[in-house]
Computed example of a mutant assay.
Amino acid sequence: MEYILRPIYQERASQPETLGVILVNKRNDETNITDTFDTVLLIIVKDAKEPIFTKHYLHEGKKMVMHVITEEQVNKWFYGSANRRIVDWIIYGKIIFDRNEYLHNLRDKLQEFSFFGRKIKIGIQFAKLIRHYIEGKEFFQRKNYLDAYFHVVESLQHLARLSVIDSGLYPEITVWDQVKKIEPSIYKLYEELVLSNESLEKRLELLFLGIDFLINSKTQDGANHILESMLSKETWSIQELHTHKELQYYSKDLEVFVEYLVDKGFISIKPILSKSETVYHRHYCINSATIKSE
């Protein structure tokens, strides 16, 4: 399909904001890799009015899609592991335009998976894990077992991604195949959830115990990125944390994560007097003793 799409990507490549163009063809009937399309044209741009712009094409019964995505949006997906297909496309797709070797350098970063990259990815995945664990536990205590089940599955997914990231790899679409080799104990929890003959209530009860143990064992590593980010100032308002260059990637999970770290003693609360004499601003500072030394 490259020759059919050539006029489209050549026009885009001529624009100065275009950083790279990748072509991905469906392989071995794996339609999930290309979102059911026969061909994906991925175009990464420096900036645009819309972070994601998509068009669908049709040629002789073949479906094609073009995604124009900003560099910032791609980075958000990388840090949050929110769109693992993008990683697959960038690593395995055919590079047909590459301004100043942007895509080749991006591939190297993904495959090398630098230590700093692991830290922020671990932090974001751990924050998501905490949110789902807490919400699932609340549903379980109210005997809403199906809702609790959903959050347990999500918790296990984030535990799986954490184990893969910690091993120095990037979570693939088939993350459970990776986890089975890397951390069998997490894979075993997943099997117990979906294959056990126990009642749903009993399965969930056992799973919460297992997840709670794993969370406690991973809290130090999970907290390291946010704690190191907070070292640049003595105290922080929650809004300052939300707008921090890196912590903004934690998005809606940031406040739940901060509260969890307060409960665990990693972060302390510092009341700051407001204009009202009876109300204080709730600011946050780190307990320096909890920073993990490298």
Score class of each variant (00 low, 15 high):
Tyr250Asn: 00
Lys264Gln: 15
Leu261Ser: 10
Leu261His: 09
Glu246Asn: 02
Tyr250Trp: 08
Lys245Pro: 01
Trp236Pro: 01
Leu231Met: 13
Met230Leu: 08
His244Ala: 01
Met230Lys: 06
Asp253Ser: 12
Tyr249Ala: 01
Gln248Glu: 04
Lys264Glu: 14
Val262Asp: 11
Leu231Trp: 04
Glu240Thr: 03
Ile238Gly: 08
Lys245Gln: 04
Glu259Val: 12
Leu261Ala: 12
Lys233Asp: 07
Glu255Gln: 15
His244Arg: 05
Gln239Pro: 03
Tyr249Phe: 11
Asp263Tyr: 11
Val258Arg: 09
Lys264Ala: 14
Trp236Lys: 02
Val256Ser: 14
Glu234Gly: 02
Glu234Cys: 01
Asp263Gln: 14
Lys245Gly: 03
Ser229Leu: 05
Glu255Arg: 11
Lys233Val: 04
Leu261Thr: 08
Ser251Cys: 01
Tyr249Met: 00
Trp236Phe: 15
Leu241Asp: 06
Tyr260Gly: 07
Leu241Arg: 04
Thr235Cys: 09
Thr243Ser: 08
Met230Pro: 04
Gln239Asp: 13
His244Gln: 03
Lys252Ala: 09
Val258Trp: 07
Tyr249Leu: 03
Lys233Pro: 06
Ile238Trp: 07
Ser237Trp: 08
Asp263Val: 04
Leu241Tyr: 08
Asp253Asn: 13
Ile238Leu: 15
Leu247Pro: 02
Ser251Met: 04
Leu254Ser: 07
Val258Cys: 06
His242Val: 04
Leu254Arg: 05
Phe257Glu: 11
Trp236Ala: 05
Thr243Ala: 01
Leu254Asp: 07
Lys233Tyr: 12
Leu247Val: 02
Leu261Arg: 04
Tyr250Val: 00
Tyr249Trp: 03
Thr235Ser: 12
Val256Asp: 14
Ser251Ala: 13
Glu255Trp: 11
His244Ser: 05
His242Tyr: 14
Val256Leu: 13
Phe257Gly: 05
Ser229Glu: 13
Glu259Thr: 13
Glu255Gly: 09
Ser237Ile: 06
Gln239Thr: 14
His244Met: 02
Gln239Val: 13
Lys233Ala: 11
Lys252Tyr: 10
Ser237Pro: 03
His242Gln: 14
His242Glu: 14
Gln248Cys: 03
Met230Asn: 08
